[in-house]
């Protein structure tokens, strides 16, 4: 594995009402990779993400960015938040501006960029997320999927080194989801690290370099997708199902239709294996 850009070591966190958010969780996010975090509702994924850019501070354990332990002074946090962009699960929690344009300019302005630069970034971010025609609309009047796109654009405009995505494709129409995913490919091609929480096992299987499975605030499994998703009993335990392509492949393999150990990622790859 390459060097870790983000890591947590034995972190625990409880919410003020006593709910256990994270429980002795350790994981590493390798630089430049695509990492997916899976887990049932309430597993602690969003809680973990709020630790990644220092919004929440663990009660025990430490969070590391580029090998440095995060201290919670203003200077470190400012620096961290410039480099780790967090896209919230609920766009209603993230958006606050009178117009989409204003919303997108907020982050880049905090980076201290010139007005012209900010404008350029905003226009670019609107273009890649397909919201250019919403520029002047107030954020609270958008549809949910549109809000999700604005939330994504608002973080993209800051050009962070790591993007933390809390369920990016939830609420998007199929084409929108497809667009976002292929756009993510572009980002990783440019060396950006992406961490994503999702309930979509098919997406996780085909897209991720590395997968973590969480349950009740802690890590219960990790590995490359084709390994992790073979463990049916583990998946059942956290109310997940096997990715369709993998399940079909395994059954076809048992019947001797395809050769073992080839693990197709997509429908097309599987069809190709069947033909050969």
């Amino acid at each position: 594995m390459t060097e870790a850009i983000l890591a947590t070591k034995d972190i625990s966190f409880n919410y003020p009402d006593g709910t256990k958010g994270l429980d002795d969780l350790s994981l590493t996010i390798p630089q430049g990779e695509k990492v997916v975090i899976l887990g049932p509702n309430g597993a602690g994924k969003s809680t973990l993400f709020l630790h990644f850019n220092g919004i929440l501070e663990p009660e025990q354990g430490s969070v590391f960015f580029e090998g440095q332990r995060i201290s919670y002074d203003k200077q470190t946090l400012t620096n961290l938040r410039k480099k780790v962009g967090l896209i919230f699960q609920d766009p209603d929690e993230q958006l606050f501006s009178a117009s989409v344009y204003q919303e997108l300019s907020f982050g880049p302005l905090n980076l201290g960029l010139s007005k012209a630069k900010v404008k350029q970034r905003v226009i670019e971010a609107m273009k890649v997320t397909g919201i250019s025609e919403l520029e002047e609309k107030p954020t609270h009047l958008l549809s949910y999927g549109q809000k999700k796109r604005v939330a994504i654009a608002a973080v993209l405009a800051m050009k962070p080194k790591v993007i933390i995505f809390d369920e990016p494709t939830a609420w998007l129409d199929p084409q929108g989801a497809e667009e976002i995913i292929s756009f993510l490919e572009e980002l990783t091609a440019n060396g950006i690290t992406i961490v994503m929480a999702t309930h979509d096992v098919d997406l996780a299987y085909k897209w991720a370099d590395y997968v973590y499975i969480m349950n009740q605030g802690t890590k219960i499994a990790s590995g490359i997708p084709s390994d992790v998703f073979q463990n049916k009993s583990l998946l059942e335990k956290v109310s997940l199902v096997q990715p369709l392509v993998l399940e079909l492949y395994q059954q076809l393999q048992e019947q001797g239709v395809v050769k073992p150990n080839q693990y197709p990622k997509t429908k097309q790859e599987l069809l190709k294996l069947i033909k050969n």
Partner: peptide, 18 residues
Amino acid sequence: HQIKVAQLSRGGYSSIKN
């Protein structure tokens, strides 16, 4: 509170000006 968290996470409140 929500707005403040959202702003903090995108670098708000990091200098006197912003």
